[in-house]
Write a protein that binds this DNA or RNA. Sequence first.
DNA 1: CAGCATTGTTGGCGGCGCCTACATTCGGCG
DNA 2: CGCCGAATGTAGGCGCCGCCAACAATGCTG
Lengths: 202, 202
Amino acid sequence: MPAEKPETRPYHHGDLRSALLEAAERTLRDRGTSASLSLRELARDLGVSHAAPGRHFKDKQALLNALALVGYDRMAEVLEAADDPGLALQDRLTTLARAYLGFAIDNAELLELMYARKHEPDAAEQMAAAIDRTVGALERAVAAAQQRGEIVDGDPEHLTLVVGSALHGLASFAVTGKFTTEAAMGAVPGLVHHLLYGLKPR
Amino acid sequence: MPAEKPETRPYHHGDLRSALLEAAERTLRDRGTSASLSLRELARDLGVSHAAPGRHFKDKQALLNALALVGYDRMAEVLEAADDPGLALQDRLTTLARAYLGFAIDNAELLELMYARKHEPDAAEQMAAAIDRTVGALERAVAAAQQRGEIVDGDPEHLTLVVGSALHGLASFAVTGKFTTEAAMGAVPGLVHHLLYGLKPR
DNA sequence: CAGCATTGTTGGCGGCGCCTACATTCGGCG
DNA sequence: CGCCGAATGTAGGCGCCGCCAACAATGCTG
């Protein structure tokens, strides 16, 4: 709980930018869609004037972009924390997949923002860098496996793409409500297995 | 079909509903985002009053839902037209994947609407049915391959999920601009190959 | 402590979604 | 054939929004 200022709220908020991002994320989670997110409402909630947010984000899209970057940061943290280089490939991938899927389900609205196809050229750079960081965990797992001979030869980037696509696709299905959380999570081990061993009979 | 009135526009438009959907799709394609789509502007473009669209779609979301259904219809057509049951599994999947990817790239904005996670319970039913139809092509290919022994045993639905996830994930990456169209298309054969033969060395 | 950049406020403009009341047209039924 | 209700379109308005400009309070630095 925030210790409430008893008397007069100070003219300057202190950290309005962070407060806006935080409130925006909360609202996004509740409402479910970024369209129904209003700068004026955020300002009202935080007790500042309706134009104050404009000092920190040049327009609404700028706030959404910043929010997406926050999402990428958090996702990278989750993946890096979950990754265990000591595990054998199958277990390592399963763990990573579970972590990604979990994050996707818990942050569906944020994810939609992160993958939104509408960032301006400047923001796009930051996004690309952020994406690379999140894909990094997967790439490392694939590269390590390749060195150990656990995995077929070939461009590691392409192999990562295969795994990444499958994961992202599953997460996308889960998030759009085609599955329950449990069903999606339950599908992970089988998915990883089929990725490793293929669909053709051996 | 409406023979165009040359002179005075008739009080009734004739087929405003279709005209709205068509104009909305065009605008969506140009603007790239459904947020910047305005019922009033559509009405203006079509030369009707700002409240006329309300007679055909109870609110903006209803129009977007209808647009998504149009998208599913068209996607199912594309997939069904592309599918060739005579092909061997690998070629058949590659063909289907190319068709899906092509549709996704050419209709990125529409796809975003189709997979949007915000349809009301009633619309959700129609969506689910539409999705089943589009996944149908994939399911048939997998089932046929299983009967011919070209594919490993197991729940065919789960196998379809593996292929579908990978495809959808790739399309998602392509659409969000992580690849050029050519790069994405070029990745398809390799993706299908890895799906069939797995990442573990044989 | 003076001056300037930063951050917040007030007010306003045009546009939007949605609602209601009213007008015109269409189509089915006596 | 003519009438009347249903369907469709119009006019106006309310409250919200994003964004902008002008002004006020504060913080920071020389």
